[in-house]
Write a protein that binds this DNA or RNA. Structure first.
Lengths: 350, 350
DNA sequence: TCCCTGGACTGAAGCGCTTCACTAACGCGC
DNA sequence: GCGCGTTAGTGAAGCGCTTCAGTCCAGGGA
């Protein structure tokens, strides 16, 4: 947008041959014939400018293609009003959370920055990136880091952990009552006549220890402690594949398997199907998460559904709440899940 | 800054009861007994400090828990060295791209910022966010925006579009040779004896127009123009579901369907399976993308695989290349895909 | 008349960093 | 003993914004 106005303004607008200098507030101010201060007020929606001036300034900004510079604002304000969200791109379950987080944060006037952990980029690094962008609040979706590290973070920013239980009072946590989900699954299987129910756990993955404990407890409640069988795993398809191979290599399959999550369940399903083990005829399988795949008819997985929207909403509210009012005790918010029965579970084989 | 000297040492470090003032370069400088300038040099890995001093400064920084402030750096440098990546959280295919993008950008000394489009947050907004964080380069993964808008963006930042062809010379693009992928699919089906091959297209979704054209061309080459059948759709499971219902409502099914992408294929598969239409006995299905689901044995989808790593790597290189050397012509980089034959295609029914 | 209030607006300082232009000290060759 | 180039280091300006402390000018009591 070149000098489309009185030549007096031209200097501020003309840019050195092709090199577009990004317009600043000063440019807008000059063009609208007011001070930078006033422009700033207007862009922050603060009172102090007449409606007439306000319009004139906004129009000038528009003509120049002006865009506020967050970095500068952040620096000047000393506050960023930004929430950093740690995600794991491969955990599809998190996709739903993100949408809600954006919406909720925006409503409260906060920015959101995403940082993904990936094979080439460990969680630590992803979090540091968020911190160096001055995020005031960190929302960590299923973080794998050690508790000590998370606790350390807590005095650099407000930390909220989603989907993982943490020792008492470390930081705010929002999660699903994993124990209940597992208990429902076991109850369901027992009702169908299963007794030999194995569990492929998720190792150190978020939620896993709780699920494992809940499995043990539920089995005990049904007097099935003798049939307890925990196969070490992870929350990945590969772990499911490995577990299935382990089971197939033995004399006798259990009649049902509780997977650590959906992805693991799908790994199991995959191997069993290829090996012509009928699911649920020969063996029943239960997942956890109710991700987008679970409901596909070719998969049709019995699984435990989490209230993703609730999780996300509360995570944001915790973060913001603590930001605006520091002296709350760390909270642990727990949402009930429920079992979704589909085609991978059926009566125990004889 | 206060009188940062003698007694100030203590002041800089002690924080006013709980309220952690984040340490700055000045704090580090004071503690190490050097100037701020020198600290800055050291943190930018520039020469001009002796090894001995360097160590001392780094140690001081460490003791203070100092963390560089990107916002300030960005402001001061006038350059952000940041690439903004637009993603769609639900397009699982993109997850793989992201990992590579991070790695590649980091190697070149660039930061990466992610911004997701979501139901509550349209693409436009997601892109503006990136811009206001001063991203110098924008990498748009399968953007849906109109060409004009994308062109407009190009003079605010360096733009690279991934996975979508754009009219000549608009901006840099990196994409798969969709035409080839489709041609391979059609050839494969024809070899299996198929003649009635329908195509569920992706409407305006990225890559879709190319795929549709390629389908028409391939059918023509096989003298099958009479059997051409395009069913309007989208790159989602729902579109596949709808298309399947459309087909089932007719007298006679085609013997094969080319879906716009894997997700659409899975929708088709889902409905056919529930309707007891045998795949591939009654009808063959081909997808596109080879996403994580395609290879699951319960799905086992014949599909076209894209070289995600190559796409991501070139996208980053384009962006950076143009950033460091402005006067290149817009490029259109095309990578060959290849057909992965799995279980959803078979001989045409009699 | 004078003082006060409040609305509209401005000037200047400062956020934490980079960078340009310097200075001081130290060989080194002649 | 002089100028020279290097290395190690410093001071200050300035990036684009916010914000504190004013200024200026109605209009309204008393």
């Amino acid at each position: 947008m070149l000098d489309d106005r009185a030549t007096a303004h031209a200097d501020a607008e003309r840019s050195p041959a092709g090199l577009h200098r990004r317009p600043t507030m000063a440019d807008v101010a000059t063009r609208a014939g007011v001070s930078r201060t006033l422009v700033s007020l207007i862009f922050s929606n603060k009172p102090g400018a007449s409606d007439e001036t306000r319009d004139r300034v906004l129009q000038a900004a528009d003509e120049l293609g002006y865009r506020l510079d967050r970095a500068a604002r952040m620096l000047a304000r000393g506050r960023s009003r930004t929430l950093g969200v740690l995600i794991d791109v491969h955990q599809t379950f998190q996709a739903d959370l993100i949408g809600t987080i954006y919406a909720e944060a925006e409503a409260a006037g906060y920015e959101v920055l995403l940082s993904a952990s990936a094979p080439s980029r460990d969680e630590h690094k992803a979090i540091e990136a968020l911190l160096s962008h001055r995020c005031e609040g960190l929302i960590l979706l299923g973080p794998l880091s050690e508790v000590d590290y998370l606790r350390t973070l807590a005095d650099r920013a407000v930390v909220t952990v989603v989907g993982r239980a943490l020792p008492h009072g470390a930081v705010d946590t929002v999660r699903t009552a994993d124990a209940k989900g597992i208990r429902q699954s076991v109850d369901h299987l027992v009702e169908l006549g299963h007794r030999e129910i194995a569990h492929v756990d998720g190792g150190a993955d978020p939620g896993s220890p709780e699920r494992r404990r809940a499995y043990l407890a539920a089995m005990r409640r049904h007097d099935l402690s003798d049939h307890v069988r925990v196969i070490p795993g992870q929350h990945t398809e590969e772990a499911g594949v490995a577990a299935a191979h382990t089971l197939l290599a033995e004399d006798r399959l259990p009649t049902a398997v509780l997977a650590g999550n959906d992805r693991c369940a799908i790994g199991l399903l995959d191997v069993f199907t290829r090996a012509h083990v009928d699911v649920p005829g020969d063996i029943s399988i239960v997942g956890y998460d109710d991700g987008p795949l679970a409901q596909l008819s070719r998969i049709d997985l019995t699984t435990v559904r989490q209230d993703t929207e609730g999780l996300a909403r509360h995570a944001v509210q915790f973060a913001i709440g603590r930001l605006e009012n520091d002296d709350l005790d760390p909270q642990d918010f727990v949402i009930d899940p429920h079992l979704v029965v589909r085609g991978t579970t059926g009566p125990a084989r004889a």
